[in-house]
């Protein structure tokens, strides 16, 4: 009885995970500029991983594989968002400015691309390195 419930549940999780990943990948391809692609890809990336690994954990049953899957889940939990964050920060640094940019630091950044490389770019860069 319990096995069939677990099997159904893991099948559902795996299906959902698969769906999210494919939608994310399609978003990765079709969205116009970098930031929207980034949003599509890294969100579904992390969620898809949780669902698929969760689904596998259900089928694994108690034992060492379950612990290893949990380890992978924790590891993805830490690294995937961090990688997304670092990617966005690096994009912000280099050449991909947000068009129009809302927050103040973004405005300072926009000046950078327009005016000559004044010293302010140095402060912005060092400002955020706490």
């Amino acid at each position: 009885m319990i096995d069939s419930v677990l099997a159904i549940l893991s099948a559902v999780m795996l299906g959902l995970g698969g769906f999210f990943m494919v939608s994310g990948a399609i978003g990765l391809l079709r969205f116009p500029d970098f930031y929207s692609r980034m949003h599509a890809a890294s969100m579904t990336d992390t969620l898809g991983s949780y669902l698929v690994v969760g689904g596998l954990m259900l089928t694994a049953g108690w034992g060492l594989p379950l612990f290893k899957l949990a380890l992978i889940l924790v590891f993805i939990f830490f690294t995937s968002p961090t990688a997304g964050h670092a990617l966005a920060k690096s994009a912000q640094h280099c050449d991909l400015r947000l068009p129009g940019g809302g927050a103040s630091t973004k405005k300072a950044d926009n000046e950078i691309s327009g005016s000559a490389q004044g010293p302010d770019s140095r402060d912005v860069v060092s400002a955020d390195r706490v």
Binding site: A25, T59, S90
Partner: peptide
């Protein structure tokens, strides 16, 4: 940066593919 993003997505998908291969081939260790 698009390429770096693609590599990042590719990497996490490979992690999942390997886990799934382990379960398909019946050797979860």
């Amino acid at each position: 940066h698009d390429r770096i993003l693609a590599v990042n997505v590719f990497g996490t998908k490979t992690v999942l593919l390997i886990s799934v291969i382990c379960f398909i081939s019946g050797r979860p260790e």
